[in-house]
Design a protein around this nucleic acid. Sequence first.
DNA 1: ATGAAAGCGCTAACAT
DNA 2: ATGTTAGCGCTTTCAT
Lengths: 337, 337
Amino acid sequence: MAVTIKDVARKAGVSISTVSRVINESKPVSPEARRKVIKAIDELGYRPNEIARSLVTKKSNVIGVIVDDIGSSYVAQIVRGIEEVGHMYNYDILLCSTYGDKEAEERFTQLLLQKQVAAIILLSEIYNEEVISYLKYASIPFVYLNKYYNVLESPTVRINNYLASKKVMDYLIKCGHKNIAYVTQEKDIELTVEKHKLQAYKDSMNELKQPQTIYKIDGHTITKGYEFGKKIEKDIRTNKITAVFCCDDEIAIGLINYCYDNDIKVPDAVSIVGYGNISIASYIRPKLTTIMEPYYDIGAVSVRKLSKILNNEKPEEETIELPVQLIVRDSVKDLDI
Amino acid sequence: MAVTIKDVARKAGVSISTVSRVINESKPVSPEARRKVIKAIDELGYRPNEIARSLVTKKSNVIGVIVDDIGSSYVAQIVRGIEEVGHMYNYDILLCSTYGDKEAEERFTQLLLQKQVAAIILLSEIYNEEVISYLKYASIPFVYLNKYYNVLESPTVRINNYLASKKVMDYLIKCGHKNIAYVTQEKDIELTVEKHKLQAYKDSMNELKQPQTIYKIDGHTITKGYEFGKKIEKDIRTNKITAVFCCDDEIAIGLINYCYDNDIKVPDAVSIVGYGNISIASYIRPKLTTIMEPYYDIGAVSVRKLSKILNNEKPEEETIELPVQLIVRDSVKDLDI
DNA sequence: ATGAAAGCGCTAACAT
DNA sequence: ATGTTAGCGCTTTCAT
């Protein structure tokens, strides 16, 4: 049987209140009593039961984290930020993965609520307004993270996608590219960040007075990017385009692999830029030039935001925007050289 | 204020016991009362407080998971297995990362114990006997996972590293390679799985009646593998070796990248084999031939093992060995063709 | 400074 | 079948 506060009290010859006071340093205790209590705790190897504790305090110092798939590398990086900074603020992490299941998001939200988590971070990849309404209704502090969709008004931490895409376009143009293609997504452009990224592309091409070449693909995987290679191959070989700006690192990497397998030299025959800076980006060859989404920081800032709310500090703006950086590597050729 | 079992009882006009009975289906309840209770639960949006529940039942259906770094891809895969199968068995996951800190392993173990987790899965990369002793002393069901070290006797799920290495060597030899090098680790060979992997290499080379070429490097990162390229470059160019068996995918990938950057064709100039099958392995070019460590399954089987223990089912063998597979891709050349 | 006692929300005897 | 009650391990009034 686990040792309880009673055992400590008995052994120390004091009341359980006194024991409670010394472990919480909540009220003054005589040095004499404190000494005895500490001794008893030591000898018995006593550790307060956090469950009992949070039942009475109604606080849990647990943050519920619902992600799409912890096996996904950017998700793991965000969770790393949540976890590491969370522990600095003394929060523990209760983790659930939904694997894109809409119902699971709501089910896990309920579950976490039942577990009395102090706050929730929901990292989603789908469009799901209900879960946000539910979260608001449950009036639990939360942060909603979604790489793709702009869902409702909700507290979130993200980057400015328009500015990020502009950065890419400016760089490509600086490198002398004129025939630049953009690879976007087929679905829900109006609802997703693609809306802003695409706008940045269009604005840039207009300024450049060049025709737009827009490809749409369905999905964010390396495999999809690879398959996409077949579609774009001709346009590359005929020099209709000299640079491809992919909405996703995965797609860019798939495309690079397709080029490698089909003897199209990157960046000599075609320049490729990604978006995200997932970890593989620097390991494939050529190394991928891309926009760095600060995943770790997104996680870190999310916890910090929640921590502030939980401590009733001054409420922040709902949306926090983090700076982005263009990571210049080897997948873009400077045509002026 | 959250709605409690009392509110439901009052609203339904029954006692709290009756409410408890219907939500737990623990004892028969008249259809009439059940109906009223369910109605009240619905109307109030009541959800039982899991904290209160586990305080009295002394069960928590939470599994504490301590990992080295959730940002590491194989770790994320194991956690994915734990998480997904865990939820099937109705367990939630409380996650902590140690980042290789020995003290953190023990601190988090204590923390999880205080949180009354039902069991612990410890995924470590260091040698730390104390934490195992502590886990045993705390008499909590646990599984100890360590990719590198063979630490003490402890319940674990792993692969047979000798057999896995043998598989690689057999394949390399089948492909006509004779001058095969093995890249192992500098540190703690006797304490780690390298002991068995190296033995398999030696046995194979002896059978082949070929001299052994063993390199030692310190670390498991892609960067280390890249740096190692400089050391081995001459031996490749002089054809002293035609194939390199790396103890780690990361090292193999680093080496492949070094070769790419220095115009050494893989696999034409040198064949390279990895170990682990991390996700990047199939995305780099050439695709890496490697041993697949079934990370997801290791996580999945670990939970299943714990679940059995927690349900007092027949105790299993302490060590579970999972099958390995050689994934043949493009980084090995068949010399006979 | 300390102890007694109430009570957090719930389950599980124990009664009826 | 249902209600009453004790108590899980703890914090926190409220007395003293």
